[in-house]
Design a protein around this nucleic acid. Structure first.
Lengths: 198, 198, 198, 198
DNA sequence: AATGAATGAGCGTTCATTCAT
DNA sequence: GATGAATGAACGCTCATTCAT
C-alpha cells in the first residue's frame, strides 16, 4: 500500500472510507462484506484493494482517523483558555459535539473495543484523551477547585459521562445537543468539585 | 427449541453458554465459530443444535441472562433501604461488583450495542435500569437532596460513570473494585447533589 | 486435520487424492481449482476441507505418498539379492515399472521440483533414493566390479537415466516397458562398469 | 505483437524477459504475477503489455529462446569435429556448461514439461536435440565403436544423464562443473560403448 | 442425545487484462 | 511509449446449518 495517489485517487479513497463507515455502522463490521461496499459505490472489487490492503486495514484506518479528528477538535476548543475547570468544560462540549456529528464512527469505536484485534489501537487513543483531561484536573486540584481524588479516575469519570450521555441522548432519544452538553457539564462539574456525599 | 431438559441436559446447556461467553469475549462473536465452541468442549456439532436453535439464539440468550442477573443483583442490594440517595449508592456498588465479576459478558453487552440485530434487546434492558434509577432520583429531588434536573439524564449519567469506571479500571488497569466503587459513588453523588458550578 | 476417519471417510479421502492426481497431472497444479476437483466428484466444497487442510497440504500428501510407494517397491524388488550389481539392476527395473504405472504422479513430482515451496519434500526423498543406490554401488566398487568413481555421482547418473528413459519412452513414445528397462539396464551397467573411453 | 522496436525497445523487452525468468524460477510461473514483474522493474503495467501479448506469450518466448540458445551452443562446441564419439562428448560438455550458466531457465523448462499447455513447444525442442545426438550415435554404431542398440534410446539416455547430473550436482550440491562434466562423459561413454554386463 | 460427514452460499482476496490519459 | 486506475471472474477457504446413523 502507501500508494502515491492522484487527486482523483484521494477522492476515491475518501469515498470508500465514508461509505464503509456508514455500512459498518449500520450493519456491523463483520456482516458488511467488501462486495457490499464496492457494489454500493458502483465500482469493481479491485478498486477496494487498490486503495486498502485489506478490510481490516481499512477499519484500522477509520479508527485512527477518528481519534485524530476528535483530539484535534478538543484542542481547538480549548485553545488557550487559562482556567483549567473551564478547559474541562470546553473539552466536554467539544467531545459531545463531535460525537453528535459522527454517530457512525462512534459506533465503530465502540465495536472496536470488543475485539482484541482492534482494542490496542483504541486503548492508545483513550490513554491520550485521559492524559489530556488529567492535566486540567490536576491543575484544578492544585488550585483547590477540584477535590483531591485520583485525577485519572476523575478524568475517566468525566469522559465516561460525556460519552455515555452523548451516545444515549443525542442518538437514541433525540434531545438537542446543547441540552445534553449542559447536563453533562453540570453533572461533571458537580462530580469534580461537589461537596462529598455527607 | 424450548425443549424439556433433564438435569444433565440443563448442565450441558449451561456449559455451552459459559464456554461460548469466554470465546465470544476473547475472540468476538462473529470470528468465533460454532465449530470452535463444540470442539473446545469436546462434543459434536449436533449437541449445539440440540440446545440452541442457532448461534444468534445462543447469543440473545446470553444477553437476556446477563441483564436479568444484573437487575436481580441490584434489587437484592437495595432491598428495603428507605433512603433514595443511599439506594442509588448501593445500586452503583452492586453494578460495579457485577461488572467486575462478569467482565466477559460485559464485553458482549458492549458488542451487542453495535449491531442493529442485537441492539433492541439491549435497549429494553437499559430502559429498565434507567427507570429503576430514575425512581430513586425523583424521590431524591422531591426530598430536595438531589438537584432539580431531568431525572432521566441524571440516571443515565450515573449509569454511564459506573459502567465506564468499572470497565476501564477494574478490567484494564487492575485497581481494586472497592476503590473504583468508592470513586464512582463520590463522583456520582457529587454530580447529583453538588452545588452548581458557581 | 489428522481426523479420526471411519471406513467411509478413508475411502472418500482416497477418492479425493486419486482424482486430484489425475486433474493435477492433466491440467497442472495451479490451474486445477479445488472447485474443479469437488465438482468432478459430485460433492460439495466442504468435503475437500474436511479431509485436507488446504490444497497445498493435499499436494504434499500426494508427494509423500508417492515417494513412500516407490521406495517400498524398490525394496521389495531387491529383497535379499546378494549381488550388488544385480540389486542395482533390479532397482532400475522396479523404478521403471513404477514410473510406468504412475505416470500421473510422476508428472507431479517433476512439477514439485520446480517450486521452492515443494522442492524440500522432494529433495528428502531423492536423498534417500540416492543413498539406497549408493550403498550397492559402493559394494560393487569394493568387489572391483564397478569402476572407482564417486558413488554418489554414479548413483545419480543411474537414477537420471532410469527416470528419463521411463518418462520419455514409456509415456511419450509408447514403447514397451520391458524394452525400455532392458535398454536402461544395459546403458547403466555399461556406465558403471564399462572400460573408460580409451 | 511483433512490434517494430527501437534499440531502447529491444533492451526493455530483454530486461522484462530476464527479470521474469528469475522471478518465475524462484517463485514458479503461476505464483508470479505480472504486477510483481513490472513492480520489480519499477515500471507501469502498460509496459508489459506493450511488449508481450500476455503472460503466457512471454513464457513461451522464454522457452523458445532457451532451446535456440542451447542448440547454438552445442553446434558451436561440435563445430567440425570429425569423430562422432568425440562429438557426443563435446555435446555433453556444452550442455552441462549451458545448464550451469542458466539454472533459472532450466527450471522453467522443467516446469513447462508438466503443463500440457507448454509441453508441445518443449517436445519439439527435445526431438531436435535427440535427433542431433542420434546422428552421432548412428555414425558411432556404423564405425563399430558404439554398441548396436536403438540410437534414439541411447541418445535419450545420454541426454538424461547429462541433464540430471548437471541439475543435481552443479546446482544443489555445488560441485565444480568440470568434475560433473567429466563424470557424465565417463558414464555415458561407458554406457554407449561399454561391454555388456557379463 | 450425540456424532461426524456433508452442503453450498458466501467471504476476503488476487490478478490477467484493458484503457483513458 | 508509458502510467496507474479500474474491471470482474475466479480463487482458496470458512462456516452455519442439516441429517443419516
Amino acid at each position: 500500500m502507501n500508494r502515491r495517489l492522484t487527486q482523483r485517487g484521494r477522492e476515491r479513497r475518501q469515498q470508500l472510507m465514508s461509505y464503509a463507515i456508514t455500512r459498518f455502522a449500520e450493519n456491523g463490521y463483520h456482516p458488511t462484506s467488501v462486495a457490499e461496499i464496492v457494489h454500493g459505490l458502483g465500482v469493481g472489487k479491485g478498486v477496494f484493494y487498490w486503495y486498502f490492503a485489506s478490510k481490516e486495514e481499512l477499519f484500522l484506518e477509520i479508527l485512527r482517523d477518528a481519534q485524530r479528528q476528535l483530539r484535534r477538535r478538543q484542542e481547538a476548543a480549548i485553545a488557550d483558555e487559562p482556567d483549567p475547570v473551564r478547559r474541562i468544560e470546553l473539552g466536554i462540549r467539544a467531545s459531545i459535539a463531535w460525537i453528535d456529528e459522527n454517530r457512525d464512527v462512534v459506533k465503530l469505536l465502540q465495536f472496536a473495543a470488543t475485539e482484541e484485534r482492534f482494542a490496542p489501537v483504541l486503548r492508545r487513543g483513550q490513554d491520550v484523551a485521559v492524559a489530556d483531561t488529567a492535566r486540567h484536573v490536576k491543575e484544578g486540584i492544585v488550585e483547590g477547585r477540584i477535590r483531591d481524588l485520583d485525577p485519572f479516575v476523575l478524568s475517566h469519570a468525566v469522559l465516561g459521562v460525556a460519552g455515555h450521555l452523548a451516545r444515549e441522548f443525542v442518538h437514541e432519544r433525540s434531545q438537542s445537543v446543547d441540552d445534553v452538553a449542559e447536563a453533562a457539564v453540570a453533572f461533571c462539574l458537580g462530580g469534580l468539585m461537589g461537596s462529598p456525599p455527607d
